[in-house]
């Protein structure tokens, strides 16, 4: 940057009320200002101000959680844009998807990003779980957050599943038909499941009927899945995401051998075990059940 521009900014931009009202801290040229930048930014303050060095290494975190969240955002943005061009009706849906390819500006790009992003998100969420398991990060005190994570994984799959129907082509319709056929067999609640006769269930009043809005995948199913995909499930998902992120911080930030201190365990043995004091680690005792 030329020094002239620098001077101009210093004199006429940074001191203005507008600038000062937006940025509550100085330029991030020293640690103090950088800390403030993280603290005073609603998005960045999901992070702690400082963290142990290993937590910034890709080989430890794999970045899968962050990528999942980024993909969630990508899906949200592309999804909102796609909603402008889509009618969830059996007569119009397919033509709308065709139009995305043939006349909507960036229509095909949007649809591709949305679909491939969704596939990718399933993968990143799964590998996030894999990493968390392999580092034992679900252990005390993060048990609850792991459970939330499992729910989020389930919801991710359900999001992808509901979205699968919306193009309304053969692939969509029959994948959903196969998928929802399982609901026939729910014990007690599906008309083909065990003990369904106890509740007097038929094909037109069981749980699958409630999910599809009919006895087969049809127009009402499309509308139902659309509402689930665009409103209901994202709402639940955002809620759980907030809890998930909040609990990461509240449970002591990123997992690691040092954070065992926060766990209400036998501190000395735990830390020593982590730090490699072999002879003592063998005598580590699990907590007595309360």
């Amino acid at each position: 940057m030329s020094s002239k521009l620098q001077d101009f900014l210093e004199k006429h931009v940074y001191p203005t009320q507008i600038w000062q009202s937006i940025f509550r801290h100085g330029k991030p040229i020293n640690d103090r200002n950088r800390s403030l930048a993280v603290l005073s930014n609603v998005f960045l303050h999901l992070h702690p101000i400082r963290l142990p060095r290993y937590a910034t290494k890709y080989t430890y975190t794999w970045g899968m959680g962050g990528m999942s969240f980024l993909l969630f955002l990508v899906e949200t943005v592309t999804g909102i844009l796609l909603m402008f061009y889509y009618h969830p009706t059996a007569t119009q849906a397919y033509i709308d998807i065709k139009s995305l390819e043939f006349d909507v500006p960036f229509g095909m790009l949007l649809r591709n990003m949305h679909r491939w992003g969704a596939h990718l998100m399933v993968l990143t969420v799964w590998f996030h779980m894999f990493r968390v398991f392999m580092t034992g990060s679900y252990k005390k005190p993060r048990e609850f957050n792991w459970a939330i994570g499992v729910l989020l994984l389930t919801i991710t799959l359900f999001m992808s599943f509901t979205g699968y129907l919306l193009p309304w082509d053969q692939l969509a319709m029959w994948a959903i038909t196969v998928g929802t056929n399982m609901a026939r067999a729910v014990p007690f609640l599906g008309h083909e499941g065990p003990f369904s006769n106890l509740l007097g269930l038929r094909i037109d009043n069981d749980i699958r009927f409630a999910l599809l809005g009919g006895t087969t995948v049809g127009g009402p199913t499309l509308l139902r899945f659309y509402v689930l995909h665009c409103i209901a499930v994202p709402f639940v998902m955002s809620f759980l995401l907030a809890v998930h992120f909040w609990r990461i911080r509240k449970d002591g930030g990123i997992s690691g051998p040092q954070s065992a201190r926060l766990a209400n365990l036998n501190k000395v043995t735990q830390v020593k075990a982590a730090l490699g004091k072999k002879e003592e680690s063998t005598v580590a005792q699990p907590p007595k059940t309360e």
Partner: peptide
Amino acid sequence: GIATKTNEAHGYVPF
């Protein structure tokens, strides 16, 4: 007919 690409409009188009 809705297609605006040569390959998608003419001949044998997948699906």
